[in-house]
Design a protein around this nucleic acid. Structure first.
Lengths: 177, 177
DNA sequence: CTTGGAATGTCAACAAGACTGACGTAACCT
DNA sequence: AGGTTACGTCAGTCTTGTTGACATTCCAAG
């Protein structure tokens, strides 16, 4: 409650160079960044949302499909940690995906309490369709902005994550290798 | 912190100038971008969410406060267009904010059908608190990534928006300015 | 002056997707 | 044998979004 005139660093500080310099970050610049996230995230989800609506699914289904595709054989507990929701919430989504034949739940081999989750053919098909739409927009944005902008984009996003999310993000690898 | 030298420019392609270069964008690179958005957005909303939970408000209230602060005197219809929700949905939120004395709704001068929305002192106080938390994270991310990364971040986000959102985004100016 | 349409607001009903809490079962580990 | 872990489910709540119907107010065109 105290930052109306937040005059941070004095004018006359060294010019920014690299990522080490003290940056002048005005209220206005930061607010524009916040708004950019807001509007961009809306665009980011718009295309998949349209496809999902056709199928009577929602974003929750998309997220599950994405990460099961990304980490085939993952367990429910692991998915829970990544998505950051309760098991009841995830279970509702997972149940419909399994019932609809998009996801397969196999009893774990070494530990039979666990369920290893995989996409079926149909699940992979929908995931590809959703992903293709989202990737098309991402690709267009990347191309419009250029490779240096893309590197910066990723750096800022990564710095914006919670530590736990960053660990999860960095842990993700190619599906299937 | 791994994508400093992500060599996905076409080998031998002309140096990127003006976002014109042809980029090789693999599925994997695009998926990582998608995941970065997902995890970063979670961090982006985490701090305000905690404050809002204390006050029994949600993100919808935050968004309304943000844009009313940003465009003092804006009308309901304009806010509707920016937030991209139905008037019923916005009205529910607005009603509680007005009832709680955070937002003031004044009958329009030139057109008395319109309602010009303003934050009260209390509304400004909460908005500042929410914004301060969000800006703190944004500032930390910007500083960690450096000024060039910030420019790229904004470029990519802007390119990711729908046309309509981009117009709205670019139309936003300093509050009071 | 009347009327059509625009802007606003309200009521009711509903759905998705999150939450908590409680409970049960099976499997694993010591 | 007993305690813990993994998973699933039932029941209830909350926020935030949706439609549809309808009333009010007011500007502006005829």
């Amino acid at each position: 409650m105290n930052d109306r005139g937040m005059g941070w660093e004095q004018p006359g500080a060294p010019a920014p160079s690299g990522g080490e310099a003290l940056l002048f970050l005005t209220d206005e610049q930061l607010r524009k960044g916040i708004e950019a996230m807001f509007f961009a995230y809306r665009g980011f989800t718009a295309d998949p949302d349209r496809i999902l609506a056709e199928q009577d699914y929602g974003r929750a289904h998309h997220r599950a499909l994405h990460f099961i595709n990304r980490m085939p054989g993952t367990t429910v507990t692991n998915l829970l940690a990544i998505l950051g929701v309760t098991k009841q919430s995830l279970n509702r989504v997972l149940r419909t995906l399994i019932a609809d034949g998009l996801v397969e739940s196999r009893v774990g081999r070494s530990d039979r309490r666990e369920r290893n989750l995989h996409l079926t053919e149909a699940g992979e098909a929908l995931e590809r369709r959703l992903s293709a739409a989202q990737r098309a927009r991402m690709r267009a944005a990347y191309r419009a902005a250029g490779p240096e902008a893309v590197a910066g984009f990723r750096q800022v996003l990564e710095a914006m994550m919670d530590d736990e999310s960053r660990r999860q993000y960095q842990g993700l690898r190619e599906p299937r290798g």
